[in-house]
């Protein structure tokens, strides 16, 4: 598995996949829909899918001395690695905003969503949607990615909009908690986001392995 991951990272990956990890830092921006950072990270991942397809990677990988399903697992592993790197940046950013910058004026007068554990949980969920809708959709054909990507974009931006709007609904103000306020709720929301990420990714991986096995390349 390490070899196929090395192949993904060294041959198939677009440099943009690595560079766009830095969009995790968008969690620092006040007055900006911070979850757009998640979309930009996935846009970088999309570039790797595009580059790999142009290089005939699917058949190249299928001919390597590994089981066909390991080709799919390698790609998922790479995608998750990039996502987790950006989530790490987002998590560090969240902690900085919750502690050191808790009272910084640009953040206390922020009309949009605060960077807190709830936001991080939603970021996990949107990455899970990417893995499920885009990556899983791609492996239905191992060739076509326009429809799965457009579908993912629509769902992702609806999610961003919903997450941004939630705290305006009476009773749901706690989703936009500052600092360590409502920490129990926030950590619970993060745990739910992580669980959804895991669930969506594992289900998508299983179905992609099955689909790829049946494909005629």
């Amino acid at each position: 598995m390490l070899n196929i991951l090395r192949k993904e990272a060294g041959l198939s990956a677009s440099a943009l996949s690595y560079i766009f990890i830095a969009f995790g830092l968008m969690f620092l921006l006040p007055g900006y829909p911070i979850l757009c950072g998640v979309f930009f990270v996935t846009l970088g991942l999309f570039q790797s899918f595009q580059k790999a397809r142009e290089a005939n990677d699917t058949v190249f990988s299928a001919l390597l001395p590994i089981a066909k399903k390991d080709v799919v697992k390698g790609r998922y592993l790479f995608v998750c690695l990039i996502e987790l790197c950006s989530l790490l940046i987002m998590a560090i950013t969240v902690i900085i905003r919750m502690t050191l910058l808790r009272d910084a004026v640009p953040y206390t007068h922020n009309a949009l969503m605060n960077a807190n554990f709830f936001a991080l949980g939603v970021a996990f969920f949107i990455f899970g949607i990417f893995n499920s809708v885009f990556v899983g959709g791609f492996y239905k054909t191992a060739y076509k990615f326009a429809r799965p990507f457009v579908t993912y974009i629509i769902i992702a931006f609806v999610m961003v909009g919903v997450a941004e709007a939630l705290h305006y609904i009476p009773g749901l103000e706690i989703v936009n908690a500052f600092g360590t306020d409502h920490l129990g709720f926030q950590l619970g929301a993060l745990a739910v986001g992580m669980a959804l990420y895991l669930l969506l990714t594992i289900l998508s991986l299983r179905s992609s392995c099955r689909n790829f096995e049946k494909l005629d390349l």
């Binding site: 192949k7 060294g10 041959l11 290089a55 058949v59 190249f60 001919l63 001395p65 590994i66 089981a67």
Partner: peptide, 29 residues
């Protein structure tokens, strides 16, 4: 599949994989 593929070699006449990677880099992987 994995064991068999280790013992066989395959080539297509005109298709090339990763056309913009150096042979050395492809071999290293």
């Amino acid at each position: 599949e994995a064991e068999i593929k280790k013992r066989i070699g395959y080539s297509t006449g005109t298709v090339s994989w990763y056309p913009r990677k150096k042979i050395r880099d492809l071999v290293a992987i």
